[in-house]
Computed example of a mutant assay.
Amino acid sequence: MDISVIGKHWKSSSFQPDLESLANLQRRMFLARAVRYAVGITTIAALPLYIMEHTSAAQIAADDLRIRSERVALDADWGKLACYFTRPNADTGRLPGVIISHDKWGLTPHFEDVARRLALEGFVALAPDYASRFGGTPTESGPALEVVGMVTKADMDADTQAALLWLKSNGKSSEKVGAVGFGLGATAIDAAVTKEPALNGAVIFYGHPPPLADVGNIKAPLMLNLAGKDQFVGPEVPAFVDAVKKANVKAEIFTYENTERGFDDDSDSAHYSAEAAKLAWSRTIEFLKATLS
């Protein structure tokens, strides 16, 4: 058993779901139809460049010659899952794969940048757009929040599995595949580690832990990067830590004091914490290299 817990955890006597503030289902379905009409649910050839209301310059340019990036469409039971795929440009043979699981804002330029940063670290990175079944992530943050909010847990589980299987079989990545999830996407990855033995490691940024009854099913090493002021996930952490200890799950859990959800996102100036983001990223890369080597 190997577990480290660093920092204090925000505590609250109540829990409210992340997406409670979204519009009602009727409005969501209207929006889904509008998105489908505008872009076509199976239009995959060229995903739009998402210009969100909170953006910043990418750390790694999309045309950086050190990497190769492209849009790919994965076969899914419901249609085509649009993804952003990137890898080192040098011919180095097969490399470990990493799934990037976006938060409730969808597959924004920021998460594509995260994928490119992983490629520069020597990984084959795949970022699925969980809003694909509704036409893809809209270009504005308000509609994006609503469309991604229409995606169910079962949808995300199925799409994560499709991404995992594709990385395992595409001929460019090695047999080792991990995942890095953020917020809503981190919750999906937390669920995946309890049921996907093909997932070899996972890094969770402020995602809800899996059901305690499922913790014993976790075989892959975990790293959790948590925000110190997270009123949603924070109350769930102590019980999860106890369950991890009892199940002898290999886990590292870090809490970054005085930070909020999104502290790693340099496109979100309201929540970004440069120092915490740098430390969390260095720990993430170190973990992935050690786990997937």
Rank of each mutant, 00 (worst) to 15 (best):
P209W: 14
A274M: 10
V203E: 05
A198H: 13
A247G: 13
R66A: 01
N24R: 10
A191Q: 12
I285Y: 08
I218G: 14
H54E: 13
S13K: 10
P221D: 11
A45H: 02
L292E: 02
D264I: 12
F30H: 14
L164Q: 12
P138T: 01
A76K: 06
A34K: 15
L22P: 07
S14K: 14
D155C: 04
S101C: 02
P221W: 09
E112M: 14
F182W: 12
V233N: 02
T160V: 03
W105D: 13
A45V: 08
L65P: 03
P96T: 02
T55C: 04
A276I: 00
P211Y: 11
E275I: 10
A188T: 08
G228F: 13
A163I: 15
K8A: 08
D268N: 07
V114R: 12
D242V: 07
L184G: 01
P88N: 03
A61S: 09
S21V: 05
K250Y: 04
E140S: 15
K168E: 03
Y37C: 10
G7Y: 06
I189F: 04
A280I: 03
D77K: 09
G234A: 08
A58W: 00
G106Q: 06
D103A: 13
W78Q: 04
N258T: 10
T43E: 15
D103P: 01
G106R: 10
R94T: 14
N248Y: 03
V39H: 08
N248L: 06
L224Y: 15
A32D: 03
L22H: 11
H102Y: 05
A57E: 06
N200K: 12
R66P: 00
V72C: 04
A115G: 05
I67T: 14
T42Y: 09
E252G: 12
A127K: 04
A125K: 06
R117V: 05
E257L: 10
D129M: 08
F232Q: 09
A62K: 11
V124G: 05
G185T: 05
A125L: 07
G262Q: 09
G7D: 02
A163D: 12
Q26G: 00
S21H: 13
V249K: 07
W78H: 01
R87D: 08
S14A: 15
A188D: 04
G262V: 05
L19H: 11
R28V: 07
F30Q: 15
I41H: 11
S293G: 11
P209A: 13
